[in-house]
Simulated scan of single mutants.
Amino acid sequence: MKKFFEIIKFVFINLFLICFVAIFSVIAYFITKTIYAKILWQPQELVSQIINFILGIILAGITIRLLSSLLIKDRHEHPFWKEVINAINSISKGNFNVRLEKYNNHNHPFIELIDGINNMAANLKAMEEMRQEFISNVSHEIGSPLTSIRGFARALKNENLSIEQRNHYLDIIENECIRLSKLSENLLRLTILDSEQYPLHLTTYRLDKQIQLTILEFEPQWSEKDLDISVFMEEITITADKDLLKQVWQNLLDNAIKFSFKGGVIKIQLHKKETFAIVTIADTGIGISEKDLPRIFERFFKADKSRNRVVSGSGLGLSIVKKIVELHHGEILVRSQVGKGTEFTIMLPLNIKECTK
Rank of each mutant, 00 (worst) to 15 (best):
I85N: 10
P294D: 03
L70G: 08
L124P: 01
A282M: 11
N351P: 01
N95T: 07
K38Q: 14
K33M: 08
S312A: 06
I7A: 11
F5A: 08
L213I: 14
E133H: 01
I192Y: 00
T356Q: 14
E274L: 09
K302T: 13
L180N: 04
S319A: 15
E290R: 12
R179I: 09
L66A: 04
F96W: 08
I50T: 00
L17F: 07
M233W: 02
V334G: 04
G317V: 04
K38S: 12
F110E: 02
E159Q: 07
G61V: 01
S314Q: 06
F24D: 06
W222Q: 08
L293G: 03
F152N: 09
I229Q: 06
N175W: 02
S92N: 11
T203A: 10
H271F: 15
E331L: 07
E174G: 08
F276C: 09
S139W: 15
H168D: 13
Q247G: 01
I8T: 14
I346W: 02
L17T: 05
K93D: 12
Q269F: 06
A60Y: 00
I50P: 00
S162L: 04
S69M: 02
M1A: 06
E185T: 13
T191H: 14
I172Q: 04
Q210I: 14
Q210G: 04
T214A: 13
I18C: 07
R150G: 00
L70N: 10
K267I: 10
K242M: 09
K302S: 14
E128W: 00
L170Y: 02
S306L: 15
E128Q: 09
H271L: 13
T63C: 06
K9E: 13
P145I: 01
S68E: 07
E185C: 04
K291G: 03
N14Y: 03
R99P: 01
E343K: 11
I23C: 13
S230G: 05
N104F: 05
Q210S: 15
T342Y: 03
M233K: 10
S230D: 11
S306N: 15
H168A: 15
N52P: 00
L200N: 10
I88W: 02
V138N: 10
I281K: 00
S306E: 15
I91D: 05
F30H: 13
I281N: 01
R154Y: 14
K302C: 12
I8S: 12
I111Q: 07
Y205H: 10
S148L: 10
S184C: 09
D283E: 07
L202G: 03
A121D: 03
